[in-house]
Design a protein around this nucleic acid. Sequence first.
DNA 1: CAGGTTATACTCATTTGGAGTATTATGGGT
DNA 2: ACCCATAATACTCCAAATGAGTATAACCTG
Lengths: 348, 348
Amino acid sequence: MMSDANMRRRSRAVHERMVGTTKDMRHDDPSVEIGLNAAIVAVIDDAPVVLVINDESNDGDSLPFGRFSPLDHQTLEIGLRSWVEEQTNLGLGYVEQLYTFADRGRHAVPDLKDPHVVSIGYLALTNADKAETMQRGTWRSWYQFFPWEDWRKGTPKILEQEIAPRLKQWAETHAGHSKPSQSLPTLERIRMCFGLDGATWDEEKVLERYELLYEAGLVEEANRDEREAASQWERSDRFGKQMQFDHRRILATAISRVRAKIKYRPVIFELMQEEFTLFELQKTVEAILGPHLHKQNFRRLVESAGLVEPTGEVRTRTGGRPAKLYRFRRNVLLERPAPGVRVKHTRS
Amino acid sequence: MMSDANMRRRSRAVHERMVGTTKDMRHDDPSVEIGLNAAIVAVIDDAPVVLVINDESNDGDSLPFGRFSPLDHQTLEIGLRSWVEEQTNLGLGYVEQLYTFADRGRHAVPDLKDPHVVSIGYLALTNADKAETMQRGTWRSWYQFFPWEDWRKGTPKILEQEIAPRLKQWAETHAGHSKPSQSLPTLERIRMCFGLDGATWDEEKVLERYELLYEAGLVEEANRDEREAASQWERSDRFGKQMQFDHRRILATAISRVRAKIKYRPVIFELMQEEFTLFELQKTVEAILGPHLHKQNFRRLVESAGLVEPTGEVRTRTGGRPAKLYRFRRNVLLERPAPGVRVKHTRS
DNA sequence: CAGGTTATACTCATTTGGAGTATTATGGGT
DNA sequence: ACCCATAATACTCCAAATGAGTATAACCTG
């Protein structure tokens, strides 16, 4: 138990310790601001979409973002929910923290008189129902920002035609320039990230792929941040639409996270309406992961895992035999340690 | 491409946007400080240990922590590595961000004139070799802070004797008081978290368990933070040694993360020395997860996954037949999409 | 009511994973 | 030198999980 006096003493101790550890540091730091950014994801008409704020700026869309004020909100997440609701009239259900960035010169404003921003990325999942009440902003397919992630019509053309050759060229010209922290030779990293030359495509490596393209200077943001001469590149969406600040990186992190998470937690149901057919569920999983699932086995998987239960109703006009409707069995949480849609890909 | 003028314009836009979204917020916020906290983990003599700073304070040990200064360090991680090295003379290998907390009244200092602290937790892994060069701080078994996580000698006594009855009692007296965000009834949460009444123990739920004990007021930090009357509890380590601030929560997050991660990424080798026997490897995995592995199957798993290769040498004086030495095959990273020690528990 | 279409059920071969038995190579005592 | 406790390693067995089909059922359209 701690008295107020003790409390205060502790508080001083904190300060001394923290300053003590930074004796070589400058003390006239500009104040730091906390920025919250949300990648709000839904699946609409079998397409994975993210909520973006259209901007007149020519740096592209941004994710909804705002400042966190410690005096107004008890926790980061409460702050996030509050201003998202305020801005877009969209109540968030599932929310999860992604990552905190504070890179200087990457997303912070270079003018030192401006406050330094530490930005905390969040992932939120919602469903088409709730999405309808949304006011500001636009739902945009996330493949507009990451066209190479879209395997719905087979291997994306951009991969072999643009990305692979350009990355390899870059790797050769910059041989040995790879950071020491990167233990893998650049060519191998490229191969692994993009599943080239027989390596398997790992749909979870969204962030790694974006970072690689960034390093290679292929995404618009890299040039922007480098402030290189305007001549080198025409502004182009060839490698996906750009976004403001480091928002495309945050979105990449978000996609990586959802793709990984639906495999071991039943978060996929955050994206579904209350009742759904198994095929609708499959389509939603495929929208997130890529369309590689075997229909019959998917049914078996979901049913035997006890993730769903039939409502008794059916959905007609499916084009064929009517489909039974199901709902999420919230009780799985009580039975299984880590229930998720543990899909593995088919070969074909 | 962006001119400097554009850059500046963008910078203003940022400011307006961010202020715009916070119109109802107070603007005299105290400046915010960024605190970095590191849970530096190793395995020494088959025990999982964490580096703590001994403190004269009666709030217990703390994790190494320091302030992040955006002007001195390019990124958060660079800042972290820099002061850890400075303070402990320990070079960090594997480092991974855990979570960012900014809860008011929980780890922040309550006096508003003190700066608000946003604390970012990191996990770092190192091995006994490197650990020797360490200067300040002490290696302490993490089970001192979480005795109920220690299943090395069967089900921990504290679980059935102390935790289960007290939690259930708490759940009954506080029926219906559970937060709306928690959809599960409290009793069910307790059951799931601690594997009671037939539920399976999930070694990854370290954070959930700690949070539950915190909510129930059983861990020392809860009383400290609540500033309740000193009479209710004698200061006691019954539910694990306390730590300063929210460091025990950060450590819980770290343990959860390592326990999950070794299953799908080969991070276990960060904790090993260069050469090791398969049994040493198993002991290390067990130190992290709990000792539930079947020796023969563990070998099969590790070898068939191609995670290791024999060095050709053997280790004698094992007490029996000499054991072959192995080293980590870094090439697995090039072959398998997500290699890790995918252990599942045995029944017995 | 035929034919197209989708849902659902069922089969089969293979792989994976848990559990146990058998064999081999040391070191320590006698 | 030999016995044996001990640990390492090899091998077997069976059951469950998984990938990939084929077969059947129930709707809609014309």
